[in-house]
Design a protein around this nucleic acid. Structure first.
Lengths: 214, 214
DNA sequence: GCCGCGACTAAGCGCCCGCTCACCTTCGGC
DNA sequence: GCCGAAGGTGAGCGGGCGCTTAGTCGCGGC
């Protein structure tokens, strides 16, 4: 145990679905290593070492190093999609749903920065087939946000010049959190989530009617 | 031979300061390759090949592969800083200066996406000393944007909850353009620049004065 | 005309990569 | 108590990596 669980921290539970235990430990070690150094700069020996196993053990549970990245990407994107769906399809105004979607999506990127970084930035290292599969998931994420913004425009809650462009900008803003978060930043994931929800509401022309100070 | 100039397109002129000619061709080839596949996945043989030279030729002009990345990063960040400085220190209201800074910064990331991608995303592949040098340049970029936002808040043009957080979000939004731009997007760099300037003004509470506030 | 010198190449060194293979446990079923 | 499968190991293969070296080539100076 040790290193893997320590660094991954509370994220570890997210990988509960992965069995057996050794396969999960390897996956968590890979997430860490990929996040720290990038996919190509990570060696299979490093991954196995972090999981406390010999280099050869990796190939009992995974066919190749790329399969590890593929599995991580799929699980991560599925989780991200689930987060966005929950927020965007709940009851409430478009304003509430967008704020909820952004704050929870950002919390996920900030809190699980290790995972999010791999999921969002190492996609190009996948082969064509795997990448296509993951891109389909990502497009579904885009659609959820797009839907909420369309709803808000239709209901008159939002005032947006370019719906597609604004959707892209909102997603881009959230995703990039995985790049910069926790580099000596004095914010908690909750704080960033709240700040970003406010910023995004302003972007869609639904800023607080009466700006409240804290 | 051709490949380098073709892909780099109009960006090529930006490397005019690099001499002699062979060194410049190698640098442009490296920018391309790093942008496409990432630093670690790029081989020195690939770089030399794109420049139409033998693998050994690279080492006449550069000590290591890392020196190429270092040089690219420094030139790119210097250019980015120059763009932000020009906009943020010109005459005009904070509103005008921020809109100018964002639109020109975004135009640079979109138009020179090849270069910007390397500059913004391959930084972690540098050694500690080189990275520290580049991070200092980046901090200066942050300061320029921060200054304009502080000015706007002081003059009452802007209404911002968290100045530091908003500064970071604005920069993050602009930088992430390098990640997604031109993946089948129907926008020109100018269009994205204009859209983003509008979005950022909304974020700082200085959206278009006229439009319908409900 | 030949020389020196910087630009460039062909060949290849030593290393470490992703991955494999022959073998060694451990353990539930009978 | 013995057996076979599942899970793990140590040693190492083929190959491609970053980088070096010995030597070739083109060319301005005298």
């Amino acid at each position: 145990m040790g290193t893997a669980e320590e660094t991954a921290g509370g994220e570890a539970q997210a990988w509960g679905e992965v069995t057996p235990d050794a396969a999960r430990r390897l996956l968590i070690a890979a997430v860490e290593a990929f996040a720290e150094r990038g996919y190509h700069a990570t060696t299979t020996r490093d991954i196995a070492g972090r999981a406390g196993m010999s280099p050869a053990a990796l190939y009992i549970h995974y066919k190749t190093k790329e399969e590890l990245l593929h599995r991580i990407s799929r699980i991560g994107h599925t989780k991200a999609l689930e987060i966005l769906r929950t927020a965007s399809r709940r009851e409430g105004s478009a304003r509430e749903r967008l704020a909820d979607a952004v704050s929870s999506f950002v919390r996920w990127h900030a809190g699980g920065r290790t995972t999010a970084r791999v999921v969002q930035y190492e996609l190009d290292s996948l082969g064509p087939d795997a990448r296509a599969e993951i891109l389909a998931l990502r497009r579904q994420c885009d659609d959820e946000v797009h839907g909420v913004i369309v709803d808000g425009v239709a209901s008159g809650e939002f005032d947006v010049l370019d719906v597609k462009g604004t959707t892209l900008a909102v997603l881009s803003l959230c995703i990039d959190v995985a790049r910069w978060f926790n580099v000596d930043g004095p914010w908690t994931p909750d704080e960033v989530g709240a700040l970003y929800a406010d910023l995004v509401l302003r972007m869609v022309g639904a800023g607080e009617p009466a700006p409240a100070q804290k």
